[in-house]
Structures are given as C-alpha cells and as structure tokens.
Simulated assay, not measured.
Amino acid sequence: MGDEVKLFGMWASAFSRRVELALKLKGIQYEYIEEDLSNKSDLLLKNNPVHKKVPVLVHNGNSIAESLVILEYIDETWKVNPILPQDPYARAMARFWGRFIDEKVIGTLHRAIIFEGKEQEENIKEVHKELKLLENEVKGKDFFGGDTIGYVDIVAQVVAFWVELLQEIGGLELLTKDKFSFLYEWIGKLQNIEAVNECRPPREKHLEYIRALVENAKSGSK
C-alpha cells in the first residue's frame, strides 16, 4: 500500500500553490481538496485546529500545517528531486531567504498596496530595498539554488507572479524590468517550467480575486 497524500488548499493562495509545486516537482501523487475559506470544512478545522487555514498536508493520516514547514517535510520524506540544498550552510541560507520572503517582503507589499500618501511611499521604498536584496541572491544564477529550481524559488513564486497583479491593481511600480533585470530573467526561467505554470492561478480570475481583497483591506484600514 502506497502513501496517502492529501492537500487542503485554495486556488488563489500563494502558500497553497507552493506546496502543490513541490509535490509536482517530486512526482508525488496526491489528492487536492479545494477549500472555501469563507465556509471552512470540518476536515480542514480538524486537520489544522491551531491556525484553521490552508495549506494543510495530510500524509498517511498525519497533518502538517504552514507552507514552509510542509516544504521541508516533503523534502525530508521524499528524497527524489531535492528542493533544499544538501550542504548545511546552503540549507540554512535557503531557510533564511524563505523566511525573509514570508516575514518581510509579503508584509511590506501588503502595506505598499493598502496605505496611501507618505506611508505608501515609504513602504514602496522598502519593497524596492527588499527586492534588491533578493535580486542579489539570484544574480549570476539561473535559480536561487543554482542550476535547478529549489526551495527559495518555490517560496518566491509570490514575488514572481503575484506582484505583477498587485502592480496592475494599485497602479504602482514595485517590480520593474529596468530596476530588477535579474529578477525578470529569473521569472522568465520559471515560466519555462511546466510544473510552475500548472500551479499558477488563471490570470484574469486571479486578478479579480486580488482586486476584491485589496478593496476590502483598504476599506477596513480607514
């Protein structure tokens, strides 16, 4: 009897999509369960009683929550096509940049879109600083991990594909080709990977979803 793998996710969630991508890159068979986050299922709440959100990976009855934790679990459980480096230092640095994206970049992007006036200007400047730090990590390489897609690339999909939509909605210059040419080259290489494209939400549907989120967040911040 083989492994039973289930993934509770949501189609527009960058965090869900990164777990799907890791599973696809490793060739792991899994059952995907789409969640309505406005009406969460009893199964989701049972499998993630602490945070009550997606993604949740259930492997042979054991549930794992939080996308960065799930990515490491997947890599340690299925050794084929490793996504984290084998070298301890490189592995630590990959974890560092994954946390940097989740704990710094995503929050700054959110504030840059939601706030207005001087606060928005300050957050846009901070976005540019953070993206430049990321760009320096991928400069001279095909991917953050080297020649092949890895952990940081999977986490950084939110920068590659979600920021473009935020720019369009907010009319802001967050990630432009002239300022971040190496990140743009990296995004182009990601777009050549079949599994990456399979995990990207439909653009127009995704754009409308994010637009509604931004409008609700803006109205809530006033």
Score class of each variant (00 low, 15 high):
E35S: 08
D142H: 14
G2V: 15
N81T: 15
K26H: 08
I124L: 05
G107N: 07
G140A: 03
G107Y: 12
R95M: 06
N216M: 13
P82I: 11
P202G: 10
T77L: 10
L23G: 00
E173K: 15
L166S: 10
L183K: 06
R95D: 08
L71F: 01
A160C: 02
E137H: 06
H206A: 04
G98R: 01
D3T: 11
D102C: 11
W78N: 07
Y151G: 05
T176G: 01
V19P: 00
D36W: 12
L166M: 12
K129T: 14
T148N: 15
S41V: 04
P202K: 09
I114V: 10
L190S: 08
V56S: 00
S221M: 13
N216F: 12
D178Q: 12
V50M: 11
T176R: 03
G9L: 11
L44T: 03
H110C: 13
P85E: 04
V80R: 13
Y32W: 07
E135W: 03
E103L: 14
K46L: 15
N39I: 06
A212I: 07
T148A: 15
I33Q: 04
N48K: 05
L109Q: 00
V5W: 03
A22W: 01
N47E: 08
V56Q: 03
G117P: 00
L213Y: 04
I28Y: 00
G140Y: 03
G98C: 07
L109K: 00
F182N: 15
Y73S: 06
I64W: 01
M1A: 14
G27W: 02
L134T: 10
G171M: 08
K141W: 05
I169P: 07
E20K: 08
F96N: 10
H206P: 04
I210E: 05
V138C: 10
E34D: 15
W97Y: 09
P85I: 04
N192G: 13
V5P: 03
E215L: 08
I210Y: 04
L84R: 00
V69K: 03
Q167S: 14
F144E: 14
E119Q: 10
N39R: 11
K52G: 13
W78R: 06
G117M: 01
I70N: 02
L172Q: 12
E122I: 02
L165I: 15
K6A: 12
A94S: 09
C199L: 08
N123E: 00
K218T: 10
I124F: 03
E208H: 10
D153Q: 03
I113W: 00
L190D: 09
E130R: 12
K205L: 11
L133C: 13
L43I: 11
S38R: 14
D42T: 14
G140E: 05
G146I: 08
E168F: 07
L207E: 11
H59Q: 02
K53H: 13
N216T: 12
E34V: 11
E122D: 14
L165P: 12
N197I: 09
I28L: 01
V50E: 06
L131I: 03
N216R: 15
L71D: 01
